[in-house]
């Protein structure tokens, strides 16, 4: 009857369980290459699986579809402004009067907290169209001044009632805690009366 000590010596000494790579002083042995290769393949597979798990948190196709909108400007008279929504944010679109344009250009740009000319904030040939986000750059309230009769602040532009930021006719910050001018989004004119935002 076979006893407990039955062993066969051929095939090399007893393999001690020092781990798949058996780095018992030899470094990585050639016979362990396949083990490393298999584990690496598993690693590659794991990374490939992680990609969709992370990417699924990016905006879905229906959200991205609303990433750009078209607005019809034909109804906005000089001196009027409208509010609309783009990427869930308020947008102010104002048709500046020549007086407002002149006043904006008269300002010494160097004295501004966030120096920008009106020309830099509008499109060539369309400097009367001021399109900005309606989000105060201080802490995010929606400034007043779009609708008829609303307080337009001391500089004839927009006024944020939350902490008293005053914007001028080019929506540049003039007084109050806001650090920068109202943000101008990406936009292009599809025609004289239609603008695409985003």
């Amino acid at each position: 009857m076979a006893t407990v000590e039955h062993t066969e010596e051929k095939g090399g000494p007893a393999v001690h369980h020092e781990g798949a790579n058996g780095a018992g002083g030899d470094g990585v042995r050639r016979r362990d290459f396949i083990n490393i290769a298999a584990v690496s393949a598993a690693g590659v597979g794991a990374l490939a699986v992680v990609y969709p798990l992370v990417n699924q948190m990016n905006p879905a196709a229906d959200v991205l579809a609303l990433a750009s909108i078209e607005v019809d400007l034909s109804q906005i008279q000089p001196g009027q402004a409208i509010k609309t929504v783009w990427r869930k944010q308020p947008i102010f679109i104002r048709n500046l009067t020549p007086a407002e344009i002149a006043e904006a250009n008269r300002v010494d740009v160097g004295s501004l907290r966030d120096p920008q000319t009106l020309a830099e904030r509008t499109r060539e040939g369309k400097t009367n169209w001021l399109i900005t986000l309606g989000v105060c750059t201080h802490l995010g309230c929606v400034p007043l001044g779009v609708a008829e009769g609303e307080n337009r602040g001391e500089f004839g532009g927009y006024f944020c009632p939350c902490h008293g930021s005053h914007y001028d006719s080019a929506a540049r910050i003039r007084k109050g805690p806001a650090p920068t001018n109202l943000e101008v989004p990406e936009y292009t004119f599809k025609s004289d009366t239609v603008v695409q935002i985003g």
Partner: peptide, 13 residues
């Protein structure tokens, strides 16, 4: 269906 159509790789998940 939003997951299947609009969420990136949603159909796979």
């Amino acid at each position: 269906e939003h997951i299947m159509r609009d969420v990136p790789q949603g159909w796979f998940l």
